[in-house]
Nucleic acid binder design. Structure first.
Length: 297
DNA sequence: CGGGACTCCTGCCAGC
DNA sequence: TGCTGGCAGGAGTCCC
């Protein structure tokens, strides 16, 4: 599930449930996810008020009144569910399930249960356990080992053709791999890289540095940077409806899939109106790439 | 250093 | 029906 748009959607979904709430109790069902929980994890959270939630790359950050920041990453299969407090199903955020909180958190892969001061329970579920949680003082966030070398946010002003020109210059790695590199752009994953390359008509196999040959900024980098931005924004937009579906049903939203032009569409016709190509699947650094060999150069 | 392979873990699906 | 192998949206680590 989670690339930047999904993480942003989850953050927005959690915000109304968590903002300004005090953490009453934290139950860990195991000692680790991808990494061990830090020493005193539950104790440092309990009794603290959450001032706000933010996002950096694919990390959700909960800022606490103690000065600590709770860092959360969903990995490949991580998910949060908010269970409403008993008998208060009115005016709940879209992220709420409408069950009573006493039934929450009993699944086989429910690893963390956070009880808030209004009785709501926040349950972290992660079958593959590639997710992680950590605590870090707000002032040390930039130096946190997982955040220190993260690149620019693609939705901010820093992402533009000139940035890509410099960042990709001399790179001999395929463009696909460079865009997946979180040190260059934060938050892109396999799906949205495939989609952005298709929209901008660039081959995933092209060596990244070939777009920065001249001193002049290549107009293809302009296309790439605006494709990244528009794809992510559209996905976030769609995320809201995905989330509503999710809250009311089972997590599998049809609207989500319809967004993709090439991802998981091997052998289908290229959806670009002026292109008669077919979507191919190849493997790059061990992962699936979907692209049109006809219009992506 | 840059680049690529390997690794963690479980669930699911196609193919036999 | 049941097994097996391959694959999955992430990313740190190790090795050349």
């Amino acid at each position: 599930m989670p690339e930047l748009p999904e993480v942003e959607t989850v953050k927005r979904g959690l915000q109304p449930a968590m903002q300004n709430r005090r953490i009453e109790f934290v139950e860990l069902r195991r000692a680790d996810l991808r990494f061990p929980f830090p020493q005193g994890f539950a104790e440092r959270l309990q009794g603290r008020r959450i001032s706000t939630l933010t996002r950096r790359a694919k990390y959700i950050l909960a800022h606490l009144d103690s000065g600590d920041v709770l860092i959360m990453h969903l990995g490949m299969s991580g998910r949060f569910t908010v269970f409403a407090p008993e008998g208060s199903s009115q005016n709940l955020g879209e992220f709420y399930y409408l069950q009573g909180a006493d039934t929450a958190g009993n699944g086989a892969h429910d690893h963390v249960v956070i009880t808030l001061d209004d009785g709501a329970k926040l349950v972290y579920t992660d079958p593959r356990r590639f997710g992680m949680m950590d605590l870090c003082p707000e002032g040390d966030l930039d130096r946190h080992r997982l955040l220190a070398s993260i690149g620019i946010e693609p939705l901010g002003n820093e992402l533009n053709a000139a940035y890509l020109h410099d960042a990709l210059k001399g790179r001999k790695t395929p463009l696909k791999a460079a865009l997946l590199d979180q040190r260059i752009i934060a938050g892109l994953g396999n799906i949205y890289v495939c989609e952005a390359l298709h929209r901008s008509g660039l081959s995933p196999k092209r060596l990244a540095g070939t777009l920065s040959r001249n001193r002049k900024v290549d107009e293809r980098l302009e296309r790439l940077s605006s494709a990244i931005r528009s794809i992510l924004n559209e996905a976030i937009e769609a995320g809201g409806s995905t989330l509503r579906d999710y809250a009311s049903t089972d997590g599998n939203s049809g609207a989500f899939q319809q967004l993709f032009s090439v991802y998981d569409r091997e052998d289908e016709d290229c959806p670009k109106p002026d292109c008669s190509g077919t979507v191919q699947r190849i493997v790059q650094s061990g992962r699936s790439t979907f692209y049109c060999t006809s219009c992506q150069r």
